[in-house]
């Protein structure tokens, strides 16, 4: 059955039992396990997310997959090619947007794109064309002939993505692409990535922002301390948290006391928190819960001024899985 699945869906990234240990010079004799047996597969065209706090092993995973870090154990394959054995072939197939700004500081924005394509042997007229197209798409055309010293964080980020796309890769790796961007640039970045994915590009992204993983990714792997904790679609992951469903009621008066207590009797309710004029109902997903709550309010003459239903969040899930919050 497993084999059959592989025939139908082609996996472009395969990671099996991946391990990486460091021996930091500062602390003698101590072995740090950056990755402790991670395994996942990414089919072609998917938007895959690695979610975890700082130091969880996300960057190490991407480093290994992009041939910049050698694994200590296990297998990592890109389109069936082992990254440790044949890094040059792997490099041809991937585009990488690293965390740090490693753009060529001696060249102008346009030259950065052109030379990158030249490294990959893209013919001259072709690379001129796609450089112009990408500069325009990423709103960098008016600064194409400037060096990158005066570029803003968002511009640098867009140029890094542009550079990664110059040689038309099959897979795009992004290491925390929106860290340090303002909300507007982040939104634009999300739109851009969604657009690229819709055009058929496989994307693997790491992030420590819950809402980013939630918005963008089709599947998320949650990692912490080098271990894979969960892997599923955002909706499925959130559903796996008991009582992760949240209804927030804004009431005019008489919130605390009897109304809160009576809500507790409703089917599926896990916990009630009432404070001042706000009642929070943590519950499992049950049909008609909001309607039942409103009916109870009507019966007890409690005036509900506003109701807000929020899906279970990944934040809650992370807390549930690791016992600690994502933002330490």
């Amino acid at each position: 059955m497993e084999n059959l699945k592989n025939y139908i869906v082609e996996n472009v990234i395969t990671v099996r039992d991946l391990k990486k240990t460091f021996k930091p010079k500062a602390r003698k004799g101590v072995e740090v396990k950056a990755l402790d047996g991670i395994a996942f597969e990414v089919p072609r065209g998917e938007f895959f997310g690695l979610l975890g706090p700082n130091g969880a092993g996300k960057t190490t995973t991407i480093g290994i997959l992009t041939t910049r870090v050698l694994p200590t154990g296990g297998v990592a394959q890109i389109e069936g090619i082992d990254v440790a054995r044949d890094p040059v072939s792997v490099k041809r197939r991937i585009g990488v947007v690293p965390q740090v700004n490693n753009l060529d500081r001696s060249l102008t924005a346009k030259e950065i794109l052109l030379f990158h394509a030249e490294y990959f042997g893209v013919p001259k007229h072709e690379r001129e064309e796609s450089a112009q197209r990408l500069l325009e798409r990423f709103e960098l055309a008016d600064r194409a002939d400037e060096k990158i010293n005066g570029f803003s964080g968002g511009m640098v980020q867009r140029l890094k993505i542009g550079r990664a796309l110059m040689h038309d890769p099959a897979i795009l790796f992004l290491d925390e692409p929106t860290t340090g961007l303002d909300p507007q640039s982040r939104r634009a970045m999300w739109d851009l990535l969604t657009e690229l994915n819709q055009k058929g590009l496989t994307i693997l992204l790491t992030t420590h922002y819950m809402e980013e993983a939630d918005q963008l990714c089709r599947r998320i792997a949650i990692i912490d301390h080098g271990k894979l904790l969960a892997l599923d679609s955002p909706a499925q992951l959130k559903r796996s948290v008991p009582g992760g469903y949240l209804i927030e009621l804004q009431v005019r008066d008489g919130a605390n006391g009897s109304f809160g207590e009576s809500l507790r009797s409703l089917l599926g309710v896990v916990e009630i928190k009432a404070e001042n004029d706000r009642v929070r109902i943590y519950a499992d997903r049950v049909e008609g819960l909001l309607a039942n709550a409103m009916r109870l309010a009507g019966e007890q003459n409690v005036m509900v001024t506003d109701a807000h239903v929020s899906e279970p969040s990944l934040e809650n899930l992370f807390l549930h899985l690791t016992g600690r919050s994502l933002r330490e």
Binding site: R68, V88, S89, V96, L103, H116, Y119, G121
Partner: peptide
């Protein structure tokens, strides 16, 4: 790393 990502 910019150079090391070139296919070489």
């Amino acid at each position: 790393e910019d150079r090391l990502l070139a296919p070489i």
